[in-house]
Amino acid sequence: MNEVNFIYQDSGHFERRSDGVELVVIPGFNSGKICFFCDEYETIWKELRDVGVANGMQLKKSMSIKSAALVDICNQGYGGVVDLVRKFDRTTKDSNRIYLKFDKNGGSFFSYFSEVSNQVSILAKIPGFFDERVYFFSKNGDFYWNSSEDVGDISRAQFNRNYEIQPASLVSIFEHGLIDGLLSVGEYSVGKGFFRLSNEINFES
C-alpha cells in the first residue's frame, strides 16, 4: 500500500536524521486539526511554531495517524510550508521524494503540479505577465491555456514563445480554486519553451 506524505522541513530535521515533520490528522485529537508528526521520534506537535521544541507529545498506541489531505492543508493555512512530497510503499519500504523548494544544477530543475482536466496539464506562472494567474501548460511545454476547460483544445492554445516559466505554488493553486483537481507533482528539467519530466509522484495510491 502506498502512502503520500506532505512534509515540513523544520530547522531541526537534520539533527533528528529526519525528512521533517509530516502534516497529519489524528482522529479524536486536537479537534481534528492538522498536527505535525516526527516518525523517527514518534512525537506530535499541535502547532507549527512548536515543532522541534520540548513540548511535543509522544505518540500513543491508541492513536491512528492519517496523512493530511492537500485541500485540508491549504484550508488551514499550511500550503506554504510544505517543502517535500514523499511517497512510501509500506510493502517494499521503498520511498520517492520530490522537494518543492529544492533547486539544483543552477536552477534547471523545478517541481510542478499537474491537474486533472480534459488531459493532464502542468500548472505554472509566467513572470512578467500582466497578471498573476496560473496557466495550464502541455506536458512538453509547447503550448499553454488560460483555463482548465480549454486544455487540449488546440484552437484555444497559445504557443509558448520561450517564456521563462515558474512553478505554481500550492498557495497560488489553492487561491485559484484548483487544489481539488491535482493529480501529481513532478520534477522537471525546464528550458526555454520546454519541460522534461525526471521524477513524478501520483497522489492516488
Rank of each mutant, 00 (worst) to 15 (best):
N162C: 03
N199I: 00
C35W: 04
V82L: 04
V85G: 07
S198N: 13
S95G: 03
Y144V: 02
F194E: 09
A157Y: 05
K104T: 14
G52I: 06
Q166D: 12
V82I: 12
G80D: 08
A157K: 09
F203G: 06
C74F: 04
E22H: 09
D19A: 12
E15P: 00
G32I: 00
Q158N: 06
L23I: 01
N5Y: 10
M57Y: 06
G20L: 05
V51D: 07
S117C: 10
E42Y: 02
N146C: 03
R156A: 11
I98S: 10
F102L: 14
I26H: 05
L182N: 10
S111A: 15
F174P: 02
I73N: 05
M1Q: 13
N105L: 14
K125H: 13
G12R: 08
N162W: 02
Y78T: 01
S62N: 09
F113D: 12
M57H: 06
K46I: 00
S205G: 10
F14K: 14
L48R: 11
G128T: 05
R16T: 07
I65P: 08
E149S: 10
R49I: 11
Q166I: 07
E15D: 11
E115V: 12
Q166P: 00
Q76L: 02
F113L: 13
E22A: 10
I122L: 08
G32V: 00
F195Y: 11
Y188Q: 12
L178S: 06
R86I: 02
A54Q: 08
F29P: 00
V82K: 04
E175I: 01
Y41C: 04
T92Q: 06
M1F: 13
S184V: 04
F113H: 14
R196W: 04
I7F: 09
I98Q: 10
A69M: 02
R97G: 04
T91R: 12
N105E: 15
D94M: 10
G141W: 08
V120Q: 10
F194K: 12
I98F: 07
G107Q: 13
D83K: 07
E164K: 14
K46H: 04
F110Y: 10
L170Q: 02
S205H: 11
